[in-house]
């Protein structure tokens, strides 16, 4: 369980994250949704210790992130951000191998190699594994980064807009992969998503943010309804039930 309490983050005078306290349950997929500038990515960066906070605390399975050594946390929790610009020239295989760094510090064991091959296979990257990252399309590169994070084999996986650059097939494949990993391996995924239909269809738990605050949180039913969506996005959104799942139509 990840417990964040009283988190605040200021950029100058502006509070980007304003007194957020949430607890994210263990297991399953939690999606964070909300309009641009709601503080979703900032919150994710704070929880994963990439960004310092001005107030508050984050505890991951009884480990306070501000006092726990970074390499201990790296075996518990992993994060992938949106912007993954890279100056290094690496192959896909090299990149995914870095996922094992928290365990082997660069000297790969046979077990590490298994993990690497499995992650490459999960994301259909085996054939591309010796291509350099700068020779890949945006979607392929995105999958390579996700493979690296999976290879890190942590209980908690935080992904900031993991569906960026992915076509429908790969986006769906990615979500199914997470669902499977959550069910079979007991992993916890925390995602920032912009497509509320993906959030509705695959999440076990949804957190909605707006203006640096958590405005709603709960199960899919609690969030994906016209009243709640109006409060979050400030627009009228029709919600239909199709095949037992809620689908929102926001095209006008």
């Amino acid at each position: 369980m990840i417990i964040a309490s009283g988190i605040r983050k200021f950029y100058g005078e502006n509070a980007v994250v304003d007194d957020v306290s949430i607890s994210l349950p263990r297991g399953g997929i939690t999606s964070i949704i909300g309009p641009n500038g709601a503080g979703k990515s900032t919150l994710l960066s704070i929880i994963s210790r990439l960004l310092g906070m001005d107030a508050g605390s984050v505890v991951v399975d009884n480990l306070d992130i501000s006092t726990t050594p970074s390499d201990v946390l790296a075996r518990r929790l992993s994060i992938l951000r949106q912007d993954n610009h890279m100056t290094a020239r690496l192959t896909v295989h090299d990149l995914v191998s870095f996922g094992r760094y928290p365990y082997s510090k660069g000297r790969l064991t046979i077990e590490d190699k298994d993990h690497i091959d499995r992650s490459l296979d999960y994301l259909n990257l085996t054939e591309l594994s010796h291509r350099f990252l700068d020779e890949l399309s945006g979607g392929q590169r995105q999958r390579a980064f996700v493979a690296m994070v999976l290879c890190q084999d942590t209980d908690y996986v935080l992904l900031d807009e993991p569906l960026n650059n992915l076509d429908m097939k790969h986006a769906m494949g990615m979500m199914k992969l997470m669902q499977k990993a959550a069910r079979e391996l007991g992993k916890t995924f925390v995602l920032v998503l912009h497509d509320i239909n993906f959030a509705s269809w695959y999440s076990d738990h949804i957190v909605a943010m707006r203006d640096g605050k958590v405005v709603r949180q709960g199960s899919t039913e609690d969030i994906i309804n016209p009243e709640a969506l109006k409060a979050i996005y400030d627009m009228d959104i029709n919600v239909h039930e199709i095949g037992g799942q809620r689908i929102s139509l926001f095209y006008d």
């Binding site: 990439l50 970074s70 790296a74 100056t87 290094a88 760094y101 660069g106």
Partner: peptide, 20 residues
Amino acid sequence: HTFDVLTLGRAHAVNLGVNY
């Protein structure tokens, strides 16, 4: 062993447990 990880940039290095 940290050098290669650092080439990935700060965010990745921290994620992988380097005491940046």
